[in-house]
Structure formats: C-alpha cells, structure tokens
Simulated assay, not measured.
Amino acid sequence: MGELFGLLKEGNKPSLLAAFVNTFIAFLKLGAFFLTGNVAMFAEMMHSFGDAANQFFVFIGSALSKKAPTERFPKGFGRLVNLVCLGAVIIVGILSYETIKEGINHLRHPVESTGFLISLGVLGIAVILELFVLFKAGKEILHEVGISASGVNPLTKSFAHLNRAKPATKLVFMEDLVATSGGLLAMIAVIISHYSGLGQVEGLASIIIGLMMFYVVGRVFLENARGAIGETDDIMRGNIADIVLADSSIKDIQRLDVIKEGEHLHVEVEIEVDPTLTIAEADDIKDRLEHLIYTQKGVTSVVIEFDEDNQIREWT
C-alpha cells in the first residue's frame, strides 16, 4: 500500500486537477439540466463526466507507469500510461455517440427549455473553470519542453509544442480545449434559442460538441496506439546522435533507437570505435556517453554496444 501511495504522488498533476474540476462541473451541469431540460446542457454534462472519468484513469495510469522495472517486466511499466489512455478514449467515444444521438433527437423533436439564466450562469462558470485547467495544462506542457511559462504563454505557445508533451498532459490539454470551446458554443446556442425561439439550435450545438469529442477520441487513440507499440522520438534521436558523434573516439553510429516508453525514453545505440582500443578505454567511453545521454530530458534507460570501425560511413 505504501508503494501505491508513493506512485500516486508521482502521477500527472494536471490530470488529477482536471478530474476534480470536471467532476464538480459535471454535477453542476447535471443539476442545471434537470432544472432546464436544455439539450445543449445535456451535451456539456456528458462531456464533463467523460472528461472526469478519463482524467482519473489517466492520473492513475501515469502514476503506475513510474513503477520500477521488475524481473518479470525488465523494461518497466512506461507504456502503461498509453494503454490507460487507449481505454479512456473508449469512454469518451461512447459519450460522444450519446451526445450526437441526443442532438439529432432534439433536431427532430425540439423541446422548449427553461431557466435561461441558470443555463447561462452554469455554462459561464464551467467555461471559466475549464479555462483555468487548460491554462494549467498548457503551463505543464511548456515545463515539460523547458520553455518559460510566464504570462499568457501557456495559452499561446503550448499549441506549438503539443506533440512533445507527455501523453497524459497532452490528453488533458486537448480535452479541456474542446471542453472550453464546447462550453462557449453551448452558451451561444442557449442565447440564440432563447431570443429566436429556435430550439433546434441547441440540438445542433449538441451534435457539434459530440463531433469535437470524436476528434479528440481519434487523435488520442492514434497517438497512444503508436506509443503502446513503441514509437521513435525523432527529435531526441537527432540530439543524442549529435552527442555521440561529438566524442572524438567514436568513428560512426551503426544503430540508434530512442523509443518512447510512456513518459520515459529508452535509448539503445551501437557505435563503431577503433578496434585497437583496450577494454578499459572502451569502458571509459561508455561511462562518458551514458553520463551525457542521461542528462537529456526524459531518458531513463541507456544501452550502449560496441563494434569495430568498418571504414564505411553509415550514419547520416
């Protein structure tokens, strides 16, 4: 039990914050839906419950992925966070379907909703809270890539570095981006419906919100499927190649793999050296390279192999 609590402390903090905030928002929207019957509110309620469930799962997965390697699992549990994210998107997919289905039903059979001010107030509170979580997730993204997160940078620069973020942080950011956009869309639909009498607008908003959720499902599924299989980090691969070739004792690189293991990076490199080197000299090179590679952000495992120089340039 002590080990479990220790791992939970290492879990992705933005996902835990988002889970609690979205749970509160979901129940707030649930109460508003019962009072008003607003179908756009229903869509937002489903969205928030889906996000909350996802983010709780992602937090637990990110924590368990920090578990140290065992004899049975020598490469550790890094990819567990990818598997959890894959499971989490199934929940969002189901809720997306229900949201779209409810929107279509409302388009066919529009029902006048009540409680205009209640709907608008609840949605306004939700948007503010979602924007706060989005800001925190954006700040975490910039922290993960080593960029200053001052001012409004978390809401502007984070988009450019989204692909380099950890899987859990990326999922939270994308879900809350859609949640914030969906909340604003639902507010617009409520206002138009109230003043124009066109109840179908709320159904249309529900369909659009559901489609936005499906977009998150598709993108997150593909990215975490690649991570679960074992995806190469091309940027870090180039950085580590530069580090290795900068050593004057290295003649060439035969093979270099930088595999994403969830939030960690596993590095395997096969280098060519002068065949006349002694074992002690080769060991010094190995220690020197390991030290430099381990200083790279996210690297938790390094395997270095040696081969004699074949006088043929292979690494480009």
Rank of each mutant, 00 (worst) to 15 (best):
G2S: 14
L7F: 07
L8M: 15
L8V: 10
K9R: 15
E10T: 11
K13N: 01
I25L: 04
F27V: 09
A32V: 02
T36V: 01
T36E: 00
N38H: 07
V39L: 10
A40Y: 12
M41G: 01
F42D: 07
H47Y: 13
H47A: 12
H47K: 12
S48V: 06
Q55Y: 06
Q55F: 08
F57Y: 15
F57H: 06
V58Q: 05
V58N: 06
A63C: 13
E71A: 11
R72F: 13
F77A: 08
G78T: 11
V81C: 10
C85I: 05
L86M: 12
G87L: 06
A88N: 05
A88I: 08
V92Y: 02
G103L: 12
N105I: 13
H109A: 15
E112G: 10
T114G: 10
F116P: 02
L120Q: 03
L120W: 03
L120Y: 03
V122K: 00
G124Q: 06
V127L: 04
I128W: 06
L129K: 02
E130V: 03
F132L: 13
L134R: 05
K136L: 15
K139V: 04
E144I: 07
G146M: 08
S150A: 08
V172M: 01
V178A: 01
V178Q: 03
T180D: 07
L184C: 09
M187H: 04
M187K: 08
I188Q: 04
I192S: 06
H194E: 09
L204M: 14
A205M: 13
I207C: 11
G218A: 07
G218Q: 03
E223A: 02
A225T: 13
R226N: 15
R226W: 15
A228K: 12
D233S: 14
N239V: 15
N239M: 13
A241V: 08
V258Q: 09
V258E: 10
K260N: 12
V267Q: 00
V267F: 00
E268S: 08
I271M: 09
E272K: 15
T278N: 08
E281D: 14
D283K: 11
I285S: 08
D287N: 09
D287I: 10
E290W: 01
I293P: 01
T300W: 02
V302S: 00
I304M: 02
R313W: 08
R313T: 13
T316A: 13
